[in-house]
Amino acid sequence: MTAAIEIHGADKRFGTVHALKSVDLTVEAGDFFALLGPNGAGKTTLINLLAGLSVPDAGTLKVMGFDVVRDYQKARRNLGVVPQELVFDPFFTVRETLEIQSGYFGLKNNDDWIDDILDNLQLADKAHANMRTLSGGMKRRVLIAQALVHRPPVIVLDEPTAGVDVELRQSLWKFIQRLNREGHTILLTTHYLEEAEALCRRVAILKQGQIVAHDTTQNLLRSRDLSRLEDVFVAIMQDGGLEAES
């Protein structure tokens, strides 16, 4: 079976900043995967390479077996990305935003699925509100909805719960777990490590552009004889943690 995400030797520099140092990473189809790391570790940079928002200096990246540069159209059809930055188009309503995004992917008659997403993200009553009038958390929900509109097999969420209230966080994770059960592969970044621990089967930790740990959540906890992922994370940050690599 082809891996959902396959990254070999991904390297990226911004001027003097070496943001990614020859990163290798594989995420199996159907997995629920956490990409962790401190601020500036390179998580968003890696996601941007995967999404084609940024071009690697070296290395290859594949989504469901499709090279993100050579086969970019197929790769992007298979990928839904929730960007970290809270961006929106102030000219349109929530529903228009989703219909437009759907259209970009060449979809028509997508209304049922759009309704389903709106319901699950508790956006139904905001469907006709202009994007400008939404609160920060609401805008974040629309961002998530936009990433799901073409039912991508691989869903990447870059800090989807930043600034989202408790209630929505729970219903959001329920929805994402449902998508995972239905076969979607999930990759997420978050700074709430208890979330990652509760949800994700596998974890990779980036530190200064390098993967310093990559294992199942269970193995990571066991290898350090610790009960919380947060403590494992802190320990790895202190010693580099290369021995924890699988």
């Binding site: 159209q73 929106f88 188009d89 970009y104």
Partner: peptide, 17 residues
């Protein structure tokens, strides 16, 4: 405008050639 506000990503993420 799309670049400054960042919403050009919504186009850049799609398979549009």
């Amino acid at each position: 405008q799309s670049k400054v506000t960042g919403n050009l990503v919504f186009v850049l993420l799609t398979p549009l050639s």
